[in-house]
């Protein structure tokens, strides 16, 4: 490995360590009180001390997120194909979807609680509602950008709209679709944690809310760390899936140079 390659390999760790060092140093130097901003060492201590509850609640949050995300993938894919299929459906649904997407999902949670009670279901639904939009938009974009010449070639052979969708539309949409999953999974986490911290007895969101009520500030931060770890893991999983499924679309050396 060349020096640059080693540096690139190490740089995520170096940056993380540097951030933690600056944080620790600043807290000590400015004598920031523990209940305002705990230093990383205190957070780490809380992380170990409460590893049991953290693991249990992380698991709940992960489960909630993944179920909401799975719903979003199914629904987003279907709606995206529908919107990409016909200009009339596109014109009709697009303003509605934009409007819906503009609504802060935290404002929807009380309604979900009204319908389903507090707990698991509102959290799953919030994760779903917040994460399907990017999937719809990306799938529809993939379909909308089919080359007209290619469409002509196939139509002249007597291809039906369904044929064109199957042979060209769906395969060419896949890179857009898998790309959108990375955004969607991150948003799904946001959704489930929002709902947990407003209306649940479980999950990291709830754990952080309780820690706040008891002024256990290091535990709040430990909760954030747990969420960040889950988020990175899921993002990495989606990125890997994307590379495996649509390697043909990622041959550019642009980002490597």
């Amino acid at each position: 490995m060349t020096r640059t390659a080693v540096l690139i390999r190490l740089s995520p760790w170096l940056f993380t360590v540097a951030l933690l060092a600056v944080w620790e140093g600043a807290v000590r130097f400015f004598k920031i009180p523990m209940f305002f901003l705990p230093p990383p060492t205190a957070v780490a201590q809380a992380f170990i001390e409460y590893s049991g509850p953290l693991a249990r609640n992380s698991w709940v949050t992960l489960e909630t997120t993944l179920i909401g995300f799975a719903l979003a993938v199914g629904f987003g894919l279907l709606l995206g194909l529908l919107v990409g299929w016909s200009r009339a459906i596109y014109a009709g649904l697009y303003p509605l979807m934009i409007g819906f997407n503009a609504i802060p999902k935290v404002a929807v949670v009380p309604i979900l609680v009204l319908w389903f009670g507090i707990g698991f279901i509102p959290a799953v639904l919030t994760a779903f509602l917040i994460s399907f939009f990017p999937i719809v938009v990306n799938v529809a974009t993939g379909l909308a950008t089919i080359e007209p010449e290619l469409e002509d070639v196939l139509k002249a052979l007597g291809a039906s709209k369904f044929d064109i969708m199957q042979k060209v539309g769906i395969p060419r949409t896949l890179p857009y679709f898998f790309g959108s999953l990375k955004v969607a999974i991150t948003l799904a986490f946001v959704g489930s944690v929002i709902s947990e911290s407003v209306a649940s007895n479980n999950g990291i969101g709830n754990l952080m809310l309780q820690a706040q009520a008891q002024f256990q500030v290091p535990l709040i931060f430990a909760g954030l760390v747990a969420l960040a770890i889950e988020g990175i893991a899921m993002y990495a999983a989606m990125a890997m899936l994307e590379r495996r499924m649509t390697g043909w679309a990622q041959r550019s050396g642009f980002a490597q140079s």
Binding site: E147, D152, V153, K155, A156, W248, A249
Partner: peptide, 19 residues
């Protein structure tokens, strides 16, 4: 009255499917 089907077409852009 409908696409003729006995024709083959080629354009300036090769429009091949990359996958």
């Amino acid at each position: 009255t409908k696409p003729v089907k006995i024709a083959g077409m080629a354009f300036q852009a090769p429009t091949l499917l990359p996958w």
